[in-house]
Simulated assay, not measured.
Amino acid sequence: MLDIFRGLKNFIKVSHVHIDSSVFRLHYSITVMILLAFSLIVTTRQYVGNPIDCIHAKEIPEDVINTYCWIHSTYTIPSAFNKRLGIDVAHPGIEKSQDEEEKRYVKYYQWVCFCLFFQAICFYAPRWMWKNWEGGKIHALMMDLDVGICSEVEKKQKKKLLLDYLADNLKHHNWWAYRYFFCELLAFLNVVGQMFLIDRFLGNTFLTFGLDVIKFMEDDQEMRIDPMIFVFPRMTKCSFSKFGSSGELEKYDSLCILPINIVNEKIYIFLWFWFLLLVFLTFFVLLYRLMIILSPRMRAYLLCLRFRLINKEVINTIVRKSKMGDWFLFYMLGQNVDTLIFKEVMHELAKRLGHASKDFGEP
C-alpha cells in the first residue's frame, strides 16, 4: 500500500512558486492523487483478492463461471432487501425471481478503475490549461526576489526591471487573470459534473449516497436497509446457460461473492463527502472572485489585509490607477516575492503612477 502512495507523492509536492489558490490546488493535487490511488487499489489483487467468486455446479469449470459472471454482470432483487435476513432470504437482495423487470443488474464493477482514472484526468485538466496560459509569468517576474538576502546592486537592478514591467504593462493583464478565473469555474463545473457522472455510473444512487448512509446509522436496527450493501452488494446472482449432451438448453443459477465491493463502497462513500467539500469550497471561491471583479474597494481591502507592511494610501493609489487583472498579478507576486522587497516595489510603483512628490510613510 505504501508503495502505491510513494509513486503518487509528486502530485502533492508544493511548488515554491504559487500561481493559483489553495482550493484550486485541492482539485489537481490531492484529488488527483486520491483518485489514482483508488484506481490502483481496486486493480491490485493483493488487497482485494479475487474480484468475484461464484458457487457453481460441478459441470461448469470454476474459471468459466467466474469469468462469465464478471464480464456479463450479476444481479440482485431490490424487493428482497426489505425481507428478513435468515428467515425470508438467505442474503440481502437474493431471492428467486422469474420476472426480468425485478432484477437490478450490477454492471459497474469491471469499470471502476477506468472511471476513477478518467476522473483523475478531468480534475487535472483545469490545472494543465492554466499552467499553459500562465506561461511562467510569475516565475519570470520573481527573478529570485523571494530570497531577501542578496546584494544591493543586484536587488536594485531586479527591482527596476520589475517596476518597469509593471508600469509599462499596467491595465494589460485582465485577459490573463480572467483565464485563471475561468479555470476555477471549470474546476467547479467539473466536480459537480463528476458527481452526476458517478450517479449515472452507479444507477442513480450516488447523489444521496452519503445522506442515506447517515440516515442508516440513525434508523432503528430492525427497520433499516444498509445503503452500502444495496448500492454495492456483496452477494449477487448470475445466470449461466449452455447446451447439454442431448442438445437441450440448460440453465444454471449461481451465487456470486463480490469481495471487490467491500473496497468500492469505502471508496465511493469517501468520494461523496470529499466531492461535496470541494463543491462548497469552490463555490465560495467563485463568489469571492465575483466580488473582486465587481468591487475595487474589496480589492484594496484584500491587499491591505494580506500585505500589512504596505501603506494603505499606496494600495488605494495603485488600485485606483490599475485594473482587476493588475490587482491579481500584484496579489500573486506578493505571495511569492520577499515581503520587504514587495513593499518597496509597491511604494515605488505608486510614485510612478503620479505621486512622485508624495512621501509615503510607514503604515
Rank of each mutant, 00 (worst) to 15 (best):
I52F: 07
D53L: 07
D53T: 15
C54D: 09
C54Q: 10
I55L: 10
I55R: 12
H56L: 04
H56G: 04
H56A: 15
H56D: 03
A57W: 05
K58M: 12
K58Q: 10
E59P: 02
E59Q: 08
P61G: 07
E62S: 10
D63S: 11
D63A: 10
I65P: 09
T67V: 03
Y68K: 10
Y68R: 03
W70M: 11
W70P: 03
I71M: 06
H72S: 09
H72F: 12
S73N: 14
T74K: 02
Y75A: 11
Y75D: 10
Y75M: 08
Y75C: 04
T76W: 04
I77F: 10
I77L: 13
P78T: 10
P78V: 08
S79P: 00
A80G: 13
A80K: 09
N82C: 02
N82V: 02
K83E: 14
R84N: 03
L85E: 11
L85D: 02
G86V: 11
D88G: 00
V89D: 04
V89Y: 10
A90T: 11
H91Y: 15
H91D: 09
P92G: 04
P92V: 13
P92A: 05
P92K: 07
G93K: 02
I94Y: 02
E95V: 00
K96L: 13
S97R: 06
S97C: 11
Q98A: 08
Q98K: 15
E100G: 01
E101K: 11
E101Y: 08
E102R: 08
K103P: 06
K103S: 12
Y105M: 09
V106Y: 00
K107C: 14
K107I: 06
K107A: 12
K107D: 14
Y108N: 04
Y109S: 14
Y109C: 10
Q110G: 00
Q110C: 04
Q110P: 13
W111Q: 06
W111M: 12
W111F: 15
V112D: 05
V112P: 04
C113S: 13
C113R: 12
C113T: 01
C113H: 06
F114K: 15
C115R: 03
C115F: 09
C115E: 13
F117D: 06
F118Y: 09
Q119S: 09
Q119W: 03
Q119K: 09
Q119N: 11
A120N: 00
A120E: 02
I121G: 03
F123C: 13
F123K: 03
P126C: 03
P126N: 04
R127A: 13
R127M: 06
W130R: 12
K131E: 12
W133E: 08
E134W: 13
E134G: 09
E134I: 07
G136C: 01
G136S: 07
G136D: 08
K137I: 06
I138V: 07
H139I: 00
L141N: 00
L141G: 08
D146Q: 02
D146A: 00
V147A: 01
V147F: 06
G148N: 07
G148Y: 09
G148E: 15
I149M: 05
I149K: 05
S151Y: 11
E152L: 10
V153P: 00
K156D: 08
K156N: 09
K156Q: 06
Q157R: 07
